[in-house]
Amino acid sequence: MSENIFINFSNHPSNRWSNEQKKAALNYGEIIDIPFPSVDSNGDESYIKETGNKMIERIMSYHPKAVLCQGEFTLAYYIISALMRNEIIVLAACSNRNVKEDGNKKIVEFNFVRFRSYIA
């Protein structure tokens, strides 16, 4: 059975989130950050499976209610699929992307809107 735990499995620490994003996450439970690992571009499918299994074990040790999973696509897909098979809510953060030009610089700002569940 899932506890009231929200796992932030990304490279965006929750202490840098907007108040709106923190509030939305807290609806699922206490926020725990687990950094998404760097993925070796030379790694094959067995490397993804091995890395994924280690991360799945770590995430599941918290008995989460929900997991925000954002990172390298093949590893994320493997982990998302496994979490969903274990009936864990898996989420993506949905944001509005605002681009401003400042002379020769482009400033990109992301404003959190909501979490969206992955569906199968």
Rank of each mutant, 00 (worst) to 15 (best):
residue 1 M to N: 14
residue 37 P to Q: 09
residue 103 G to P: 03
residue 110 F to W: 03
residue 31 I to M: 06
residue 95 S to H: 09
residue 49 K to N: 09
residue 61 S to C: 11
residue 35 P to D: 15
residue 70 Q to G: 01
residue 90 V to W: 02
residue 97 R to P: 08
residue 111 N to M: 05
residue 17 W to D: 09
residue 11 N to D: 10
residue 64 P to L: 04
residue 87 E to D: 15
residue 56 I to D: 00
residue 42 N to H: 00
residue 22 K to H: 01
residue 119 I to E: 15
residue 109 E to V: 07
residue 33 D to C: 10
residue 6 F to D: 04
residue 69 C to S: 15
residue 104 N to H: 12
residue 116 R to P: 01
residue 113 V to K: 06
residue 7 I to M: 05
residue 92 A to T: 06
residue 86 N to H: 13
residue 103 G to I: 03
residue 14 S to P: 05
residue 101 E to S: 10
residue 60 M to P: 04
residue 86 N to G: 10
residue 26 L to C: 07
residue 27 N to A: 12
residue 103 G to Y: 05
residue 57 E to M: 13
residue 105 K to V: 03
residue 104 N to D: 15
residue 30 E to M: 03
residue 95 S to P: 08
residue 8 N to K: 07
residue 6 F to M: 04
residue 88 I to C: 14
residue 73 F to S: 10
residue 78 Y to C: 11
residue 19 N to E: 13
residue 112 F to T: 03
residue 111 N to Y: 10
residue 64 P to A: 11
residue 103 G to T: 09
residue 95 S to L: 06
residue 46 S to M: 14
residue 16 R to C: 11
residue 117 S to A: 14
residue 111 N to F: 05
residue 2 S to L: 12
residue 53 N to K: 15
residue 87 E to A: 14
residue 105 K to A: 07
residue 53 N to I: 05
residue 78 Y to E: 13
residue 27 N to C: 08
residue 106 K to F: 05
residue 11 N to C: 14
residue 37 P to K: 09
residue 39 V to G: 00
residue 91 L to G: 02
residue 113 V to C: 05
residue 74 T to M: 09
residue 65 K to F: 06
residue 90 V to E: 04
residue 85 R to M: 15
residue 50 E to S: 13
residue 100 K to E: 14
residue 8 N to L: 09
residue 54 K to Q: 13
residue 75 L to Q: 01
